[in-house]
């Protein structure tokens, strides 16, 4: 019945008509600008290439990840908190389709925030270091653009996994607070976990989400620790993502809407 894209349009409206979303984009632009200026001032007279400048700013992508987790946390839980879930689910659409529209809107948002981030950091970097565009950091046989795009892809996968985790917690606990909290926990303890439970010493750790999230470890055909490969990590990540979606779907579909 009807057109599924209108549901996605609705979800988009609920994301982009909130001032919060524009504050997120504003914060990203401001932080990119702020750190560019800071690096420029700190660098003194020595100039780096624009590509290196972009790479220097990429740590700020954490902000995009946090914002994506926040939007994901609210997209289902918000409807419960606002009480609007009661009006949303009594339309001629199955719960599966309603949830799918939310998932699609979330994925579109993660893509948008990623594009905004990299456009902003690229434009600002090229504007600040227009004179020197050959990279010192990258060797001649690699195109900096290709390298950057590969880097974006790895970082985006990381963001998407966290956003989908947040989406699941949001659907299961109907609380955006818990969803944001747990996603941040995963985001920031991933590194510590990998150090504490090195897969070389703890073979089971290979199968945890944390040690597989950073796909850049396989860059240039390198092999990971404890015989892990790119294919292995992709399989593990994909399994987790499917699990997150399956749990979200089952809980959302079965839940009695009581409050």
């Amino acid at each position: 019945m009807g057109n599924f894209m209108r549901l996605v349009q609705n979800e988009n409206m609920k994301i982009y008509r909130r001032i919060r979303t524009w504050v997120m984009f504003g914060v990203i632009l401001l932080m990119v600008l702020f750190f560019s200026i800071l690096f420029r001032l700190g660098g003194g007279s020595s100039t780096i290439s624009s590509w290196d400048a972009i790479s220097q700013l990429s740590f700020l992508y954490y902000l995009a990840t946090i914002f994506a987790a926040v939007v994901a946390a609210d997209i289902v839980a918000g409807e419960f908190t606002w009480g609007t879930i009661k009006l949303l689910l009594i339309r001629p659409w199955t719960r599966t389709k309603v949830l799918a529209s939310k998932l699609l809107a979330l994925i579109l948002f993660t893509l948008l925030i990623t594009v905004v981030f990299f456009l902003a950091s690229s434009l600002i970097s090229f504007a600040m270091y227009p004179e020197n565009t050959t990279s010192l950091m990258y060797s001649d046989d690699v195109s900096p653009l290709a390298y950057m795009l590969e880097d974006i892809l790895y970082r985006y996968i990381d963001l998407l996994v966290i956003a989908l985790f947040s989406f699941m917690i949001s659907a299961v606990f109907r609380s955006s607070g818990i969803a944001i909290g747990l996603s941040m926990f995963i985001l920031f303890t991933g590194g510590i976990f990998t150090m504490l439970f090195n897969p070389v010493r703890y073979p089971w750790a290979k199968y945890t989400l944390f040690v597989n999230m950073d796909l850049s470890q396989y860059r240039g055909g390198q092999e990971g620790v404890a015989g892990m490969t790119l294919g292995f990590s992709i399989t593990v990540l994909l399994s987790y993502v499917l699990l997150f979606l399956l749990v979200s779907w089952l809980v959302f579909k079965k839940r009695d809407v009581a409050a």
Binding site: R6, N10, W82, L87, P92
Partner: peptide
């Protein structure tokens, strides 16, 4: 169902548009 809860950050018109899009 109980109090009519609406999206407070949207206008009344946008709320109606939201539900209108969901019905053919």
């Amino acid at each position: 169902v109980e109090n009519p809860e609406m999206y407070k950050f949207l206008s009344g018109y946008q709320n109606l548009l939201h539900y209108a899009r969901m019905s053919p």
